[in-house]
Structure formats: structure tokens, C-alpha cells
Write a protein that binds this DNA or RNA. Structure first.
Lengths: 215, 215
DNA sequence: ATAAAAACCGACTGAGCGCTCAGTCTAATC
DNA sequence: GATTAGACTGAGCGCTCAGTCGGTTTTTAT
């Protein structure tokens, strides 16, 4: 085996992710980061030109970690009706945000959006991430509108924005732990279903076609 | 007329509200607050024992300003079906958050929730505010479930939490201005309606009663 | 007019911060 | 063995910040 010990740079990123998520960007001191990793403060600035660069690096990694995982999910998503796919996607989103709490906490930090206003790369990353999330919802909804399980009255993209907003909002409530959101899961799914489902009678207009649908 | 000039204390609160909302609690320096109000730094600490106390004062005022306004709204809410009331409430919430952007921005600050974890008063205020918001939705939904316009399948409180989450999420998107949410208003209302409406056929089971319903 | 109280002032303090830099240590290269 | 380059160090610099303090002005009560 080669390189069993993590190098200092990775250790710094790891610890910074933890601290930024737990205490926020501004409240994380370089001294604490140094203590936590065993690296001298100088070492941190040897690897990163400043504190902001650490945040950006984490954001870059987040994008490169999470987006493929979402893409992979989208490809393996089972071939039920579009409406079922939406429900599944909500569930997947809730699961991902729970299992990667630290990373998603960064996306909810005010600092990220402040930075995005002056730093184009930051803005691009954030937009790419949200576009990916919303795209998955949109595709599911679009599928549903084609197979007749979802009402076509509202644009797929707009519905996607609304469903995503709802899911993300629940995540936020969970993180701020003002209300117990865990008990709301079943109702959340049911609400999404009611919001979207087609009830015009022309329900089964077009079953998922056997012939592979072109990309 | 007496006391046309605002006293320094009120000026400080006003400026602090503006700055905390605009730049966040941590990024607002007492020096800036001093410059903006014309009050010396010493004066600020004469009126408030520390920075946190300023934040708490604003939060207290927010509660005492906003809650009565919501209560007033609830009482004057027109006597349509419960479903209509929910839509109206969503609209009212969006309107209020827009016209009082600074205050509501405070409610979306991470600092508020950090403080709530150590300071019981802060936690009480936050809970009271959110309870008030959600209560209004809950009462509207409950009314709807009684008059048959809203499906009784989901508890009024749980539906209220979901609808409120959705509305609040839109507000957040608007503030972070990543996506243009203004164009989504119509669809938001429609989605809420679809989510809640009763479609079991027993729709008009019970019209709003002429006799005053007891509190 | 006078005294007491309340409001106000701004220079100052000390702690904490992000970041620098002169220099050490390690391991590969010649 | 000498040279070199990259990884690493930690004391310390310049600066910002919340909060203090001794003193002055303004208001109120007598």
C-alpha cells in the first residue's frame, strides 16, 4: 500500500469542512484548524493562499463529489411512472442531505452567497449544483407529464423549483431543529403527490414506452 | 409636539436592524453602528450591555411588531372557504416578508439559531414567532377541513407546517437571489391549492355556518 | 440656582484574527 | 557528500473588534 497516512492538505480540508459546517465560516479560526489537524498555521497558508481559498476548495470538491452521485442516481432511477420518480427523488434528496450533512450545511451558509456575489467561480459552482438538483426533479416531472401521471398544467421546470424548494426547506428545518420534521416525511411525500398528480381522467394516456426513449 | 427627534437608543436599534439584516450580525462592527447613528461607541454600550443584547432587543421588538399584525390579519380574514383562506394567507406571508425584508432577514440568520441554543429567551421568541405563523395556516386549513374545501386526510398542523415551509422557502430563494422566484407566484398558489383541496365529491358537505362558531 | 441623575462622549485596552516570513526538516537528484 | 526543492514550522505583525472608563454635557427635580 502507498500513502496510507493522509497528507496534511487533505487533513486540513477535512477538518475545515467539519468546522465550517459546525460553527460557520466566520467563526472558524485558523488557529483552531491548526490545532485540529496538527498542522502549523503556516502550513495551512502554504497549501492555501487564504482562508477563502479553503472554502472554495471545499465547494469545488463538493460539486465533484455530489453531482456525479446525483447523476448516477438519475441513471439508475427505476422505470416507474414519472410521479413515482418524483417521490423517489424527494426521498433520495432527503437521504443525501442527511448522510452528507456537513457538505449540505455549507450550501445553507450565508457566506456562500456573499462570496457568490463577488466571486464568479463560486457563483458558477452554486448554480451548477442547484441546476443539477432541480434538473433531476424536472426530468422526473417531465417524464410524468409524458406518461400522463403528472398534470401538464404547470411547466415541468416551475414544478421542479417548487418541489425542490419544499424538500430543501424541510432540510433546513431539520438542521435548525426548531421543529421535528422527521415525523413529517410521509405527509411530505403525499403532499408532493397531490400537488403534481394528473386527475383529468386521461390518466393512462401513454404508458412508458417499451422502445428505449432517446436521450 | 413633543420628541420629534428620535432618541439615540431608537436610532441605534434602527441602524442595527438595517446592518444586521444587510451584512449579518458578525460582520456588523460597533464602530460602523456608531458612525451610522452619530452616537459614540460608549453611548451604545450605555444603552445596551453588549452587542448580543442589541440583537435580542430587535428580536423582542420584531415579535411585538409582527405578531399583532398577523393576529389582526387573522381576524379580518374574509369569510370564504378555508382553501381560499390558505391561499390568501400564503399571499399575505409573501407580502409581509417583502415589506419587512430587514426583519425577516434576521429570522433567517444562523446567529439567531446559535443564540437560541444557549439563550432561552431567544428560543422562546423564535418559537413564538414561528408558532404564530404556522397557527394562522393551521386555522385556515382547519376551517377548510370543516367546510369541506380541504381534504382531511392530513392533520391540519402537519399540512400547515408543509405549506409554511414552502412559502418560507420561496422567501429564502428570493433573498439569496439565485433564482427568479417572482415569476413563480401563480404556480405556487396553484400548487398549494392542489396539495390541499378536497376532491372526494363530498365537497360542499358543510357550508360556513351562519351561527357564529365558538372560539 | 443648584444638585442629582441620566445621557453621552471618544480615547483606550486587550484579545483574537488572518496572514507573513525567515528558517528548518526531509527526501530525492546529481 | 553536496545541492536542491518542496513540505512544514511558529513567532510575530498589523489590524479589527467588542467592550471599558473617566470625564463632560444635558435633562430633570427641587
Amino acid at each position: 500500500m502507498r500513502k496510507t497516512t493522509i497528507n496534511k492538505k487533505d487533513a486540513i480540508i477535512q477538518a475545515a469542512t467539519f468546522l465550517f459546517a459546525r460553527k460557520g465560516y466566520k467563526d472558524t479560526a485558523m488557529g483552531e484548524l491548526s490545532r485540529m489537524t496538527g498542522a502549523a498555521e503556516g502550513t495551512i497558508f502554504y497549501h492555501f493562499k487564504n482562508k477563502q481559498e479553503i472554502f472554495l476548495t471545499i465547494l469545488r470538491n463538493l460539486k465533484e463529489d455530489i453531482l456525479p452521485e446525483f447523476e448516477r442516481y438519475r441513471k439508475t432511477a427505476s422505470k416507474k411512472t414519472g410521479l413515482d420518480m418524483v417521490e423517489e427523488t424527494v426521498a433520495f434528496y432527503l437521504y443525501m442531505t442527511k448522510s452528507r450533512e456537513d457538505l449540505f450545511s455549507l450550501l445553507h451558509q450565508r457566506y456562500a452567497y456573499e462570496l457568490a456575489e463577488t466571486n464568479p467561480e463560486c457563483r458558477e459552482i452554486l448554480e451548477a449544483i442547484y441546476d443539477c438538483f432541480i434538473d433531476i426533479f424536472e426530468r422526473a416531472i417531465d417524464t410524468g407529464q409524458r406518461d400522463g401521471s403528472i398534470d401538464p398544467a404547470i411547466t415541468a421546470r416551475k414544478s421542479a423549483l417548487i418541489v425542490f424548494s419544499l424538500a430543501d426547506s424541510m432540510v433546513r428545518f431539520r438542521m435548525n431543529n426548531l421543529y421535528d420534521v422527521g415525523a413529517l416525511y410521509k405527509e411530505l411525500i403525499e403532499s408532493c403527490q397531490r400537488m403534481l398528480e394528473n386527475r383529468t381522467g386521461t390518466q393512462e394516456r401513454q404508458k412508458p414506452q417499451a422502445t428505449a426513449t432517446p436521450e
